[in-house]
């Protein structure tokens, strides 16, 4: 029975991995990776590692893949799927040759190993193998330093991601034209929404409704000039 399950799950994991590599739309690649991760979690279950299997599904297939889906939706790429093969380069042939070399090397290492225990199912397990109790105890005793360093790494990565992806101008043409003396009330907003600046200037009461093309930019003369330059 374990045999059958192993081949089913391994088949799904490999199919998901192939899908990630060959599918041309990045969104489908992400979905394919989700299949791969779930199949891999089931393989972890076959290896009696319950906690890691659950963490794999919750952290990977849940959180990390949602992040991927959002970024793929933001950046896109499905409109112009890349061709798998760019004519005139030998890159793919070289890559496949190199990957085959890696696989052959790994297979030799696994099959020709002196570790005779690799041919067995592993030694008899203690009752708490793979449970949260065991993982927690190990993390807080033998591997406390790794645990603390990992948490520090997560903190650094979170700060770094915000610093990298934070908005520093560049998405809209006219953002660079805002001079420092503009306050927060001058930032773009939909016109005629009753802001304080509009109330002071009598906007919407006496002034005619704006040209819809410049809606929301009425308070920024440089922006308007830039938009007219574009025309």
């Amino acid at each position: 029975m374990t045999f059958l399950f192993f081949f089913i799950f391994a088949g799904f994991a490999l199919a998901g991995a192939v899908g990630v590599v060959v599918l041309r739309n990045p969104f489908y690649c992400v979905l394919s990776l989700v299949v791969h991760l779930v199949a891999l979690a089931l393989l972890f279950l076959l290896l009696e590692a319950q906690f890691v299997a659950v963490a794999q599904i919750v952290v990977y297939a849940g959180a990390v893949m949602v992040l991927y889906v959002f970024v793929v939706g933001y950046v896109g790429g499905g409109d112009h799927p890349e061709p798998l093969w760019r004519a005139g380069t030998r890159q793919r042939a070289l890559a496949i040759g190199f990957a085959s070399a890696i696989f052959i090397e790994l297979a030799i290492a696994v099959l020709g190993t002196g570790l005779s225990a690799l041919g067995t199912e592993g030694i008899a397990l203690t009752a708490n193998y793979g449970t949260p109790e065991q993982i927690g105890e190990l993390l807080l005793t033998d591997f406390l330093l790794a645990f603390e360093l990992a948490s520090m790494l997560l903190l650094v990565a979170a700060i770094g991601a915000v610093a990298l992806a934070g908005r520093r101008g560049g998405i809209a043409e006219d953002e660079g034209n805002l001079s420092p003396r503009h306050g927060v009330v001058d930032l773009p907003r939909p016109a005629a929404t009753g802001s304080m600046a509009e109330g002071v200037s009598g906007y919407g009461v006496t002034a005619p409704l704006p040209d819809p093309q410049f809606e929301g930019r009425e308070l920024q003369q440089p922006a308007r000039a830039a938009a007219e330059d574009d025309r």
Partner: peptide, 30 residues
């Protein structure tokens, strides 16, 4: 199931991943 099988599957997945890193050009897919 002996541990060998899992290691072979692991080697296959690693090879596929390495291939993808080398042939794909979209950084998301990399």
């Amino acid at each position: 199931m002996s541990v060998n099988w899992y290691l072979i599957v692991s080697a296959m997945i690693f090879t596929l991943g390495a291939t993808g890193v080398m042939i794909r050009r979209n950084p998301l897919v990399v």
